[in-house]
């Protein structure tokens, strides 16, 4: 089964998002590299990306056929989506175990969402 591990944290908090030249930043990056190494070497990672902060987000909606864009995230929240992985896991227990290994799990939260798949006729499987 595929699971999306959505990485949430307060992007304004230095603990979640340390300044780029700080030792904390180096440690965080090291942690993510180690995670990628471990999960990657076991063939678990389907995809995974880090996202820029929400201050550069653009929100798009179509109203009466017209594209409407707004500056910023679609909702102002205390914790923002900062990145994600799509992992191939046997079951929810395995997905939870990987989620707990993501460095930001210590300072933020990881939402584990099963990925919905569809067959050729477009039916959920």
């Amino acid at each position: 089964m595929k699971y999306a591990l959505l990485i949430y944290g307060d992007e304004t908090s230095p603990a979640v998002s340390p300044p780029q030249d700080s030792p904390e930043f180096a440690e965080l990056i090291g942690g993510y590299m180690a995670f990628g190494e471990e999960a990657g070497s076991q063939g678990k990672i389907v995809a995974g990306e880090a996202l820029h902060d929400t201050d550069v987000a653009t929100t798009v909606t179509v109203v009466d056929g017209e594209t409407v864009t707004t500056d910023g995230p679609f909702a102002e929240t205390k914790e923002q989506l900062g990145g994600f992985y799509i992992l191939e896991c046997a079951d929810l227990d395995e997905a939870i175990a990987w989620a707990a290994k993501i460095p930001t799990a210590k300072t933020g939260r990881i939402e584990v969402r099963p990925v919905q798949s569809y067959d050729d006729e477009g039916q959920p499987t």
Partner: peptide
């Protein structure tokens, strides 16, 4: 949908 397993957890858990 979430693949909750019906199994006896591993020793660590």
């Amino acid at each position: 949908d979430a693949g909750v397993p019906f199994k006896i957890p591993d020793d660590a858990e």
